[in-house]
Design a protein around this nucleic acid. Structure first.
Lengths: 181, 181
DNA sequence: CATTATAATAAACATAATGTTGGATTACAA
DNA sequence: TTGTAATCCAACATTATGTTTATTATAATG
């Protein structure tokens, strides 16, 4: 937020560290990444790192929050409408679009070397879409399980799509997911 | 395998370490658990730990393999049949039964403080059940996505059930999952 | 029960990452 | 240009790691 009114040096430091984190997380789990390795790859002094972040996780979480904020900003004009009937697929398309434009980042943040926090954020966002269910013959608990089933299924498709290079278009993907739900 | 022809002291050491790991993994991610903390909780000398395992991950993986072997042993009389039409729900029921009997362990091994290895094993096992799909109007890639969707959904329901105390019976759960697929 | 084998312990060690500090240097903004 | 502040550098104590050694305790066996 208001990253642009920051000192260039600060911007540079944080950018290099974030990039380094993404590169390392392609190879290893977040909690096995040392601050030392991170700083060496980013060519940033270790004491500078600690001036910005507490540890690797802190850096990851700040990245996650920034991405989510940015994503929500990109959805701002479709989200309020999402409670009528046609909007869900529109929201989905937008999410897939945004993810495709930032696929390297999304692949890492949603991949198995990350923590579950980002995944939870995305789930929360997409439950607006996947939780609509007007079958009243089912009890509440069964419905809960169904929502769980659906959202996990969606996320998993999302991950597969990212991992395999976002071959399909955003439209194709949102249609596929829309049909499955 | 053939754990019973081991020296009692060895059995004791490994049991204590496994129990300690399960306890710690209720609180924190596997890769943040130190060998030191593990040994202190288990009251086992640290050099003894290294006589058995390389690190926490090694201990976890050995546990995972043992559980999977034991689970497969419990399924041995239903698995060969699983390629006809009625067996899937039977396999599911057995898996839920076994998991319920070892729910603390399963909750940890499938929980977010574990790695993905155990989850992958379970997925592999349950894909025998969830991957049957004879809709020929769909292309191969779409089918892949559907399999992905289904298995992830199943695992997620499984996790929810475990986390909330395995309230439903194994039969209820296998029926629910059977219907969803 | 006594003997032998071996597992576990305790203590010490080098190594490496951590988190912090104080001071020198550099780059920025105004 | 100048004051401010971010970065760098070097040093530090602390902690976990992984290994090794000698010693003690326990299990298996005849």
């Amino acid at each position: 937020m208001n990253e642009n009114k920051l000192d260039r040096r600060v911007k540079y430091t944080r950018t290099m560290l974030k990039n380094a984190l993404v590169q390392l997380m392609k190879q290893q789990h977040i909690s096995t990444i040392s601050v030392k390795a991170l700083c060496e790859l980013a060519d940033i002094n270790r004491s500078t790192f600690y001036a910005h972040y507490n540890d690797q996780n802190d850096l990851l979480h700040q990245m996650e929050e920034e991405v989510m904020d940015d994503l929500r900003w990109h959805l701002k004009d479709v989200l309020p409408q999402s409670f009528d009937d046609k909007a869900p697929v529109l929201v989905l398309t937008r999410i897939f679009e945004y993810a495709k434009e930032n696929s390297e980042l999304f692949q890492v943040l949603l991949g198995e070397n990350s923590d579950y926090l980002f995944q939870k954020d995305v789930i929360e966002l997409s439950q607006i879409v996947s939780s609509r269910n007007n079958d009243n013959t089912l009890d509440a608990r069964t419905k809960d399980y169904i929502v769980e089933f659906r959202t996990a299924g969606c996320i998993s498709i999302f991950q597969k799509w990212l991992k395999e290079g976002t071959i399909e278009s955003s439209d194709e993907m949102s249609n596929l997911v829309g049909r499955l739900l």
